[in-house]
Every structure is written in structure tokens, then in C-alpha cells.
Write a protein that binds this DNA or RNA. Structure first.
Length: 261
DNA sequence: AGCGATGTTCGCCG
DNA sequence: TCGGCGAACATCGC
């Protein structure tokens, strides 16, 4: 379930299981997830160790000394660390074998995720046109990223070039908590409302990280649990509505979330 | 059986 | 240029 909170959860899992272990072997189960040539990928990594990791938006970068491994998880990506080869998970696409005979699997059921290499994190971020990381940005970052933008609020939040890390689910939650209609044009928000939105982005993402992306454990006044079935708004008991914005569907409460025009 | 799904990217068009 | 839309990518579960 990889939006920012999930990728942050993957990062913590990765850090606690896989850092500082020598990589002895790499098994590429399906090279369609690789953005680099398979042999080159292996040559660049085997014999090295994962020194540290950093997250930007939905991307995870791993420092390998002079080169960075880049993980993106698409819609169905995950990591799994295990000890015996017969425990290899279904949809394991890239398997790293460490010197201690343990394994780390990069899982991708639908193979929308991609594994890449880059010389420099900043260059990669620039090439992918990623905006500031949603969790680490300052209010100034946020304001200047939105400058002269007129997209729908939901589209703007999901636009990785404006803010990196927010996807379909969290954009719904953020707008619900901020009481903003998804189709409000983002440039219609005044400074005060923008600051409120900024604070809510942080709060919702922080909650997501603390709950490790387990949606069922979210607070009672969150709309996320109501995304699948058109339910009752937990704040006003009105009916949750579904809407479509550029091929993605979202949910909102028409009486709590007011459109500003 | 067909549709939709937590993501990204590209081409089209207003 | 910006931004909305729809398709494409690949697979699986409902």
C-alpha cells in the first residue's frame, strides 16, 4: 500500500533488517521491474552493503557507496526479510542474499514498481520532477510549490511535482480533515487555509506512519475506512460521496467539505 | 467474466 | 504552459 506512510514503514523495516550486511548474491526473478540492465545491476551491487537509506516522497534511496539503489513500489510493492529460501514470498521479483544467508525480497505483484540505480539522489529527484517531500517540507516549500497552480485540490495534492508522497487515499483523508472539497481550485485557498492544509498534511501523514499504514486502525473520525463502501460521514452523519478525478476515484463528504470558488 | 486497484507516464486537447 | 482526461503498463481478487 505504498504512499508516503507506507514507504516510510518500508524504510524502517529495511533499515532494521538489511543495513550493513554484505550482499553476496542477487537473483532477478523478473527483470521487467528493473530500469537498468540486469548484469550491470548485479555487478554494481554484489559485494557491497546497504549503508543507509533515505526516502523522498514514495521513493526509497539506498546508499551503496558511490551509487544509490532506488526503490519505487508502485501500487503493490513490499519488502520481506527472511532466512530460508523456501520462505520466498509470492511475487518476489528481486532477491538479495546476504553474507549471513538471510534474504531480502523486493515484492511487486503487479510490477508497477521499479528498481533503479542513480549516481546522485538530487539528480534523480530532479529528473523525475519531484517536488518537496510532503512530510519533510516547510510551509515555505509548500507555498512556493503551489504558486500559480490552479489544479483541483485533490489533483494538486497527488501531483508528485508539486508535493511528493501523497496518493489517492491520503489525498482523500487530508482534504476531508481540512474540510476542502476535492474540486476546489488550489489557488482559491487563502494563506490561512493553506497553513491549515499544510498542518493537516503533516498530521495525517504522521498518523499514517504511526499506524504503519494499517488503514483499519485509523482514528474514528477518519474517512479512509469509508472509502470502499459509500458510508456515513463519521463527523456529520451525512452520506459519503464518490467522485472521479482524472481516472482516479475519491471519496468525500459533500456537507463537511465545502467548495470554495 | 469483467472490472477495478494505494502509481507513473504519455499523448491529446481546451 | 497548465491541467484535465484517458490509455497503457501487468496481475489478481472480487
Amino acid at each position: 500500500m505504498p504512499e508516503l506512510p507506507e514507504v516510510e514503514t518500508f524504510k524502517r523495516y529495511f533499515d532494521s533488517t538489511s543495513l550493513n550486511k554484505n550482499i553476496n548474491e542477487i537473483m532477478v526473478r523478473d527483470n521487467r521491474v528493473l530500469n537498468v540492465e540486469e548484469n550491470n545491476f548485479k555487478i554494481k551491487i554484489i559485494g557491497k552493503t546497504f549503508n543507509s537509506s533515505q526516502r523522498h516522497g514514495k521513493y526509497l534511496f539506498v546508499d551503496l557507496n558511490s551509487i544509490f539503489l532506488v526503490f519505487h513500489f508502485g501500487m503493490t510493492g513490499d519488502f520481506e526479510y527472511f532466512s530460508k529460501i523456501d520462505e520466498e514470498p509470492t511475487h518476489s521479483r528481486i532477491l538479495f542474499k546476504f553474507q549471513n544467508d538471510d534474504y531480502l525480497s523486493y515484492i511487486s505483484q503487479r510490477m508497477f514498481g521499479k528498481v533503479d540505480l542513480t549516481e546522485k539522489v538530487e539528480t534523480f529527484i530532479k529528473e523525475k520532477k519531484l517536488g518537496p517531500d510532503a512530510f519533510n517540507m516547510t510551509f515555505q516549500d509548500f507555498k512556493s510549490a503551489l504558486k500559480k497552480r490552479s489544479a483541483y485540490a485533490k489533483s494538486a495534492l497527488m501531483d508528485q511535482s508539486i508535493v511528493a508522497g501523497i496518493g489517492n487515499i491520503y489525498s482523500d483523508e487530508i482534504l476531508y480533515q481540512a474540510k476542502i472539497h476535492p474540486k476546489t481550485k488550489i489557488n482559491k485557498l487563502d494563506e490561512l487555509k493553506l497553513k491549515e492544509l499544510f498542518d493537516i498534511i503533516k498530521r495525517v501523514l504522521k498518523c499514517g506512519i504511526e499506524k504503519k499504514g494499517e488503514l483499519s486502525t485509523y482514528p474514528k473520525n477518519y474517512i479512509i475506512p469509508y472509502r470502499n463502501k459509500k458510508g456515513i460521514c463519521p463527523k456529520c452523519t451525512g452520506k459519503i460521496q464518490r467522485l472521479e478525478i482524472s481516472g482516479r476515484h475519491g471519496f468525500f463528504c459533500p456537507s463537511c467539505q465545502i467548495q470554495i470558488n
